[in-house]
Design a protein around this nucleic acid. Structure first.
Lengths: 234, 234
DNA sequence: GTGTGTTTTTTGTTGCAACATAAATGCAGT
DNA sequence: ACTGCATTTATGTTGCAACAAAAAACACAC
């Protein structure tokens, strides 16, 4: 919707492969909450929306489904997944293991500029929260975390963590307003920065783990409260 | 080459999608060591070998590359990856985090039949080792580990761990003879079984972590010794 | 209305040809 | 021999039509 008809150059770092572009766009929409859990995606529908043929659209859908960002509701039906409590718990346990690892290793390689960038990003989170610009705050929150994880220099780990975030992104966005009320995560983020300053890997890990656990509790509660009003999520 | 011309039914659990079949076959070859690090795979080459069109072949290659089981050596060149020390370390750290998690959670859900199956599998590993049937022993070793990981009932975790094994599979096979000399892993496996018997999650985690660490040291040494004779791996 | 069987429409997958470009090859020139 | 460049070959990606199968729409009996 935002892009003009079929301009080839959108920006100078456009992925060479068309399928990658489609993938990135869907991924972005997913993280930003443009889709709701249960929404159905089709090859031809995507192809038409993004003005490409079915091959790249199909590539993107398959890739997203492979990563768990989309799920099969039937042999020919892929949808944006609902956040089942069991899936949320599994993802949270994996996040604790993997992001904990990344956080711990980050402390060994951080330099002062990184810490400045982190503080800057935290300011943006706070601003977004204060002004009730939740989508923006959520985005900044993601940036904050990945700023840390990037430090450890483990590309495959980073990619794996990204798929975990992608997997809960849609539902996260969906719940965010109620989720963000209590200045979520600020304390933990400050503790993480402090740990980085001290180059104390255990402290950074503890802060990140605490952040993940707090988020887990909060989103579980929000989810419960929301479903209290309806008979079933679907 | 092995299959007849275009028989539709090969076995009754054949994946519906052709691309999945290609994927499974390459994956199998990779884990069994049919390819060597550096081997180049092409869409048309695979398509011809497996008597399919380029679309499923391309799907399989892209998926494998996405999982890291194949890597890009150039924009149009995918190869079986070499095991760089840095990549090995990253994968090992992720394995410790994820397989440690799976091992710990497995203790809470194990039943006696599972333990019997595990003991049986260990017998097969020992037999394979004794008779110098290394590929078989390696396969049984994989089965042993995944028998444990399956217990925790976390499907996405299992899938992620599988991609880690796939990623080091080719090089593992390549190095296995020298790697297996010293009855690798038997002690750790017994400790894991013992921990399962006691329903002691920490003990199972410790045993699996120890197993992973032992394997890491051993394969690193094997790799070093091998490269001592040559100027460069390639 | 509810459930069941049938028809129609939609959908993913596959094979294939065209295209742009990367990789391989050949060839001077030194 | 070896490097640098031009030519040729090989390769990944894309778009598209055909097909089988699933999903949706529909009709009808109870």
């Amino acid at each position: 919707m935002a892009s003009s008809t079929q301009l080839v150059i959108e920006d100078d770092r456009q992925p060479a492969r068309l399928g990658d572009r489609v993938y990135q766009q869907i991924k972005e929409k997913l993280i930003r909450g443009a889709y709701e859990p249960g929404d159905k995606l089709t090859v031809r529908g995507l192809a038409e929306d993004l003005r490409v043929s079915s091959t790249p659209a199909r590539d993107a859908i398959n890739r997203l489904a492979l990563e768990g960002a989309l799920v099969y509701a039937g042999p020919k039906t892929v949808i944006v997944p609902h956040l089942e409590p069991q899936a949320l718990e599994e993802i949270t346990l994996m996040r604790l293991a993997l992001e904990g690892l990344a956080a711990e290793k980050a402390a060994a390689r951080v330099v002062d500029e990184d810490i400045e960038a982190l503080k800057e990003m935290q300011l943006q989170i706070n601003a977004g929260l204060d002004e009730r610009r939740y989508a923006e705050a959520l985005w900044s929150n993601k940036e904050f975390h990945f700023l840390i994880y990037k430090l450890c220099g483990m590309p495959y780990l980073l990619a794996t963590i990204e798929t975990l975030w992608l997997r809960i992104g849609a539902s996260f966005n969906d719940l965010y307003p109620e989720f963000a009320e209590a200045k979520y995560g600020v304390h933990n983020h400050m503790a993480a920065i402090e740990g980085l300053v001290e180059r104390d890997g255990s402290a950074v890990r503890a802060a990140i783990e605490s952040d993940i656990r707090d988020g887990y509790r909060r989103i579980k509660r929000a989810n419960r409260e929301r479903h209290a009003g309806r008979s079933r999520p679907a």
